[in-house]
Design a protein around this nucleic acid. Structure first.
Lengths: 153, 153
DNA sequence: AGGAATAGGTCAATCTTGTTGACGTATTCC
DNA sequence: GGAATACGTCAACAAGATTGACCTATTCCT
């Protein structure tokens, strides 16, 4: 392979990333619309869902947004009764975030379509391909501060 | 593996997607800032760069935005002399988009960091893993209207 | 020839998501 | 008792997108 062909191959993979990311979010975005929430809300539910008791600060680290940007959707989710907060017994400054029953249900609905989509691809390409895919994605994710929560996810 | 463990494994992969996509765009976004342009402009340059002579309509299909959303950044890129347009000889309604010299240079600078990042991962995980990763991403990309341009990319 | 369709451009109003900066409260650390 | 931390919130602003309306130029079709 020439240097130019090699560059070309890399270029195509970057384009694939763009298309793939859109496909991942398309269906959940449409479901979220029905509940008058957006992708941010989905993300918040997603991480609280598998990291119950997460603090606001930890969520900020994962999502890499400012506290002002997180505050509004977080309040909306509380008002819509999708999440609850209770203060840490050992440090009352810290708020621990949890999903309510309806929050879990909503998350389930949002995530189900992504899981089914991924499962369909796994069925098609085979489990070994997925292991390799995951390895590559882990390399990408490694430089993110929120990646330290991946194991507990 | 139990059904729950399996779900958990899928969940983690979806989180990986989120983190990975952020890592992919972080560096180019910072470079773009220096030129007072944004991620949309990068995307436009990206696709015109390897699909020279692309029409506005084709670009709309690839990016999946409205023509109003595309119009502003496209005009800005023209004003900054990063792209040129000339009308199709066979159908004068169609504008063919091309990069200028400085447009190519800028794209090169933006894309280089993404290529280096990907190359570093390839060097680490091995080429066979990348082939598998690409296969999975192609499956995701398949449902996007713009994916038909991937081969010519 | 003439009307419909296509490619493109643009104005206006609106929305969402995010930013920076400033300020306030409660709690804990030292 | 003062500094630092966790969290909340207000305001101003910018980017990126949407829908809807309207315009020109060109081509297609009958």
């Amino acid at each position: 392979m020439t240097a130019s062909e090699h560059e070309h191959a890399l270029y195509k993979k970057i384009a694939l990333f763009f298309f793939a990311y859109r496909s991942l979010n398309e269906k959940p975005d449409r479901i979220a619309e029905k509940y008058a929430i957006q992708r941010v809300h989905h993300r918040i539910l997603f991480f609280i869902g598998h990291l119950p008791g997460l603090s606001v600060n930890e969520l900020l680290t994962i999502l890499e947004v400012t506290k002002q940007a997180l505050n509004v959707p977080l309040r909306q989710l509380r008002e819509k009764n999708y999440i609850t907060t209770d203060s840490d017994p050992h440090d009352k400054r810290i708020k621990r975030l949890h999903l309510t029953g309806s929050g879990s249900e909503l998350l389930q609905e949002l995530t189900a379509v992504q899981m089914e989509q991924l499962q369909a691809i796994i069925d098609k390409v085979g489990a070994s391909h997925i292991a390799a895919w995951t390895k590559v994605m882990e390399e990408y994710a490694e430089e993110r501060p929120g990646s330290k929560y991946l194991d507990s996810l």
